[in-house]
Computed example of a mutant assay.
Amino acid sequence: MDPGIYPAVISYLKKEGEKMSEKNKLCVAMFDEIALKKRLIYSASSDIVEGYVDFGMEEGRTGEMADHALVFMLQGLHKKFKQPIAHYFVKGTISTQKLVVKNVIKTVRDVGYTVVATVCDQGPTNVGALNLLKRFCGNPADSNYFIVNKEKVFIIFDVPHLFKSIRNDFLNGGTLVMANKKAKWSHIIQLEEKNRSTLHFTKITKLHVDPKFRARMKVKLAAQILSNTVAAILKLLSKISNSREMLQSAEIIEDLDRLFDCTNGPSSRHDMKKKIRENVRENSFHHRLWIEYKEKLRSLHFLI
């Protein structure tokens, strides 16, 4: 596959889309970067030197060496499908990435699909490109969409990445305030020390409370330390020590755990049936949670 939008894939999507209803052609455009080693390699088959920034036929190549590959994929909202549609070799070019995002969405819409949202992580290049797209169509900085061909495209940040960012900000600041309650990271450190000496839970370790380097990038560690298990143990310790502050830490961690479960949706219908088959009823905690914590989300902030 050459860099840029894949013509053969777009042709295939157009052909398949002719058999699909408009509802089944609703989709999101996901994109992410993967780090690359900088190197130049001569390709005898194409008679070019590979390793430079390359935006395909849309924007061409530059003289800079690429350090990331940017990949786009479509995912259906109602019909189950995932399809990579483009890749580019990039080097932190926010303005060009903005143009690439717009071109991909336009191309997909031209063959009959409706891209209702983008999904990406909060990498500075991604955020910068999306902010440029918002400013280009005259939207305020705090808006959650941009316009392509007079239609809204909503901006969604990857939930596991957001949860990891919450953990990192909580760890760095030491204090997290949510709905007039205050959690302290020092309470989690105390819990880990207690666990090391007496409790021995395998998912509460030194690495969880003091992640270094690549460990900070692992969602699993963030989900395990901001979990219902940790909240339950903190509640028990708060009763033993009669600590109202520790109880507040437990309650906030419990809220974050439930929030993560409700927003990090299943990856397929099979997973949905397996994981939440008895929970998505009108009286389930999922529905009550969104009503109860709608205002809490707006009040979430960190004290550094």
Rank of each mutant, 00 (worst) to 15 (best):
A222H: 03
M246P: 04
Y52A: 00
V90S: 01
G265A: 14
V90P: 06
A35S: 12
R196Q: 11
G123T: 04
E282G: 02
N180Q: 15
K102Y: 02
S45E: 13
K275G: 08
L297P: 00
A183V: 03
R167Q: 10
E254V: 06
L297A: 12
S249P: 04
I147M: 11
K203Y: 11
L36T: 07
L130G: 04
A69N: 08
Y113V: 11
K14F: 14
P140I: 00
Y145I: 01
Y113H: 13
I41P: 07
R288N: 02
G56T: 04
F72W: 02
F146I: 03
F260G: 04
K206T: 10
N283F: 13
D67N: 15
K19L: 08
L207N: 07
N279D: 11
I240F: 11
I291K: 15
E59W: 04
K91N: 12
K23V: 02
Q190C: 10
F154Q: 10
D142L: 11
E245T: 05
S299I: 00
P266A: 05
V101E: 00
P124C: 01
V108D: 00
L247T: 12
M73K: 04
P211Y: 07
K296H: 04
N172S: 10
M20W: 12
E33C: 07
K164H: 05
S268R: 02
S227I: 03
E295Q: 14
K239P: 04
A223T: 11
K294L: 10
F302I: 06
R61Q: 06
V119R: 03
